[in-house]
Design a protein around this nucleic acid. Structure first.
Length: 446
RNA sequence: GGAGAGGUGGCCGAGCGGCUUAAGGCGCCGGUCUUGAAAACCGGUGACGCGCAAGCGUCCGGGGGUUCGAAUCCCUCCCUCUCCGCCA
């Protein structure tokens, strides 16, 4: 949600944002609904005022007059009812439209509608192509087969396509990357959380996934709840409907969750392997900070670097791209992806996504903070007397998030990059403590 | 799952159809007094909407109803607590 005042005052800017993000919202219609809503609001206020004054009069009037006066209020009552009804429907329509209006992106965000418009910011590490290995390259499916790391057939038997079972060293590796990432984030003073993964629909609207991406989410309709596709949902929503105090910001959180994705729009795409699956485990970092563009930009950089540190610890080559307006999604102000080199795909492929929303999510979640009034100069006893009254203000927070690690997708580059001529897979140093000291994964003796 | 009790401002808590523009207390802020502080006393202290403003209105868990008028009565949903049952 954006501030409706921005739409009233700068409709063209909002229309441009719609065009740049490839979205269609009838801004002019929205504005006419908004105007009607304000008319009704004013009429309602006046009518209620009359009614309350009349009520006071009736209460004080002698008994015999009460009936007469009461009767006179009939038409007012009826009119209020009519206005209330129209207001309710106008409110609902306006709200529906507002939920579809995009955040206006940062001026420097690249404008465009496809991956090719994304801008590469930096590359770290040396990518290895299939031919660079000096022996016959195996993709993660082949390695998984020979080393017994993954069981796709049984995954499908249990739960249909895009499901899998991680086995033995495969399951250990999955757990190891998550635990390594967890420890890295704890060292950066992010507060660890465990959160519900089956949440109220309200949170999906609040974080911006609904109504536009409802298809991509598993619904538990009997209970009006949904399975989250990321811990971003419960963590960003943690303080919804609260007014935090400025001095407790920023809130830095990290949470692991299983993430459920229907992949409705991706039928037939990436159907083999661990790349696009219906469930995964992901460690997500979330920042709630004050509504200062410089402050949130700073945190955006920090959460990006946190994730790069994890990839560097894993010794995986990656690049960072700034995502263009057409790819960034409705609520985002600015977005960076980290793409990790995947030898079998012969490309950098998305493994992380760092987003800044400004107050888009906070408005929907009713997530606010109160500014702390400036402290009076030390020793000035009369400061309160002479100084004018400084009022604290209430603002919507800025929210940001980034993947710390998502597995099993990250296992693709991990096993492919570290394979050896003998078919074994070496385990990067940083993971060994989480792998019972194991240095390499070898085919089970059978 | 069964039975009962509740959900009121930052917190506690009164109110159970119209002097409530929500009592009272705690907390917080400002002031008086004081070298400073504490105590005491005085004053202030919510959110949201409309309006240039004065101001007006909305909000007593959510929604609906009764009424000239609802925190207060009725219906319904949600949540919390207590006891019982079940259970990792």
């Amino acid at each position: 949600m954006i501030d409706i005042k921005v739409i009233r005052e700068e409709p063209d800017r909002v229309k441009k944002a719609c065009a740049d993000k490839g979205m269609t919202v009838d801004i002019d219609h929205l504005l006419s609904i908004d105007a009607r809503r304000r008319e009704l609001e004013t009429e309602f206020n006046e009518l209620r005022h009359q009614q309350r004054q009349a009520g006071e009069k009736i209460a004080k009037a002698p008994k015999e007059e009460k009936a007469v006066l009461s009767k006179e209020m009939g038409p007012i009552r009826d009119r209020i009812k009519a206005v209330e009804e129209e207001r309710a429907s106008v409110d609902a329509e306006l709200h529906e439209l507002m939920l579809r209006v995009p955040q206006v992106p940062h001026d420097d965000a690249p404008v465009g509608h496809g991956d090719e418009s994304n801008v590469e910011l930096r590359k770290v590490g040396e990518p290895r192509r299939k031919g660079d290995f000096g022996f016959e390259f195996k993709d993660h499916l082949a390695l998984g087969e020979s080393l017994g790391l993954f069981d796709f057939e049984r995954g499908v038997k249990l739960a249909g396509s895009r499901n899998y079972v991680l086995c033995g060293a495969g399951a250990m590796l999955h757990e190891a990357v998550l635990r390594l990432a967890w420890d890295i984030m704890l060292r950066r003073d992010f507060v660890p959380l465990t959160v519900p993964v089956l949440v109220n629909e309200r949170l999906m609207v609040g974080t911006g996934f609904f109504p536009l991406h409802r298809d991509e989410v598993y619904l538990a309709e009997r209970d009006n709840q949904c399975l989250v596709g990321t811990a971003e949902v419960p963590v960003t929503g943690l303080h919804c409907d609260e007014i935090l105090s400025e001095d407790e910001l920023p809130k830095l959180y990290v949470a692991r969750s299983t993430c459920f994705r229907r992949e409705a729009g991706a039928a037939g795409r990436d159907t083999r392997g661990l790349y696009r699956v219906h469930f995964m485990d992901k460690l997500e970092q979330v920042v709630l900070c004050k509504a200062d563009p410089e402050e949130s930009a700073k945190w955006h950089e920090i959460i990006l670097l946190n994730s790069e540190d994890v990839l560097q610890a894993l010794e995986l080559p990656y690049r960072v791209v700034e995502v263009c307006t057409g790819e960034m999604g409705q609520g985002k102000y600015r977005m960076y992806d980290i793409e990790t080199w995947m030898p079998s795909r012969e490309s950098y492929s998305e493994t992380h996504s760092a987003s800044s929303f400004h107050d888009f999510q906070a408005r929907r979640l009713n997530l606010r903070y109160r500014t702390s009034p400036p402290v009076a100069a030390a020793g000035s006893r009369t400061a309160g007397k002479t100084g004018r009254k400084v009022k604290s203000e209430i603002h919507f927070c800025h929210t940001l998030n980034n993947t710390v690690i998502a597995s099993p997708r990250i296992l693709i580059p991990l096993v492919e990059t570290n394979q050896n001529a003998d078919g074994s897979v070496s385990i990067p140093q940083a993971l060994r403590p989480y792998m019972q000291g194991m240095e390499r994964i070898e085919a089970p003796a059978s």
